[in-house]
Simulated assay, not measured.
Amino acid sequence: MHDGRALKGRVGWRRLVHASGYSWAGLKAAFRGEAAFRQLLALNLVLLPLALYLPVDRVERAVLIAVCLLALIVELLNSAIEATVDRISLELHPLSKQAKDLGSAAQLVALSLIAVVWAVILL
């Protein structure tokens, strides 16, 4: 039986290099396979430069940027949940639907957070 310890045996720089490779592979997979991720990336390509340009203080600028990046993080986690559920079974099941719906709800909250924070700071 494999307990996963062999995969965790790297330490130091080797671990960092391999972890970075896995992270990069995840970003590429999200970009290639997830339309919602690409849409959020496009939104971030507009909002992040705008956040740098707006006449706001440093804390407000940091919050404007943070909520945009948070939505990308939530989308990556939502995509991971969906991939895991689909890996387990493509059969329709109430718990599979619930897991996917909860991930989608998390993304809705993250997008709402962007709207609320940007509105509060700019209005």
Rank of each mutant, 00 (worst) to 15 (best):
M1L: 07
M1F: 07
H2W: 13
D3N: 15
G4D: 14
R5K: 15
W13H: 13
W13P: 02
W13L: 14
R15S: 09
L16S: 13
V17D: 04
A19K: 10
A19H: 03
S20P: 01
S20M: 10
W24C: 06
G26K: 08
A29W: 00
A30R: 01
R32Y: 03
E34H: 06
A35F: 05
F37E: 01
L40P: 00
L41E: 02
L45F: 12
L45K: 04
A51M: 06
L52H: 08
L52M: 13
L52W: 15
P55T: 00
D57K: 09
D57T: 01
V59D: 02
R61A: 14
A62S: 11
V63N: 01
V63F: 04
L64Q: 01
I65S: 06
I65C: 05
A66C: 06
V67K: 05
V67W: 02
C68I: 00
L69G: 14
L70K: 13
L70P: 00
L70A: 04
L70N: 08
L72W: 01
L72S: 13
E75K: 07
E75I: 03
E75M: 14
L76D: 00
N78R: 15
E82V: 12
E82N: 08
T84D: 03
T84K: 05
V85R: 03
D86G: 01
R87L: 14
I88E: 05
L90G: 11
L90W: 02
L90A: 09
L92A: 11
H93W: 08
H93L: 10
L95Y: 13
L95C: 08
L95T: 11
S96W: 03
S96A: 15
S96L: 05
S96G: 15
S96E: 10
K97F: 14
A99R: 12
S104N: 13
A105T: 14
A106P: 01
Q107I: 04
V109E: 09
V109Y: 05
A110K: 02
L111K: 10
L111M: 14
S112C: 10
I114E: 07
I114L: 12
A115Y: 08
V117H: 01
W118R: 11
V120P: 00
V120E: 09
I121L: 02
I121M: 02
L123I: 09
L123K: 07
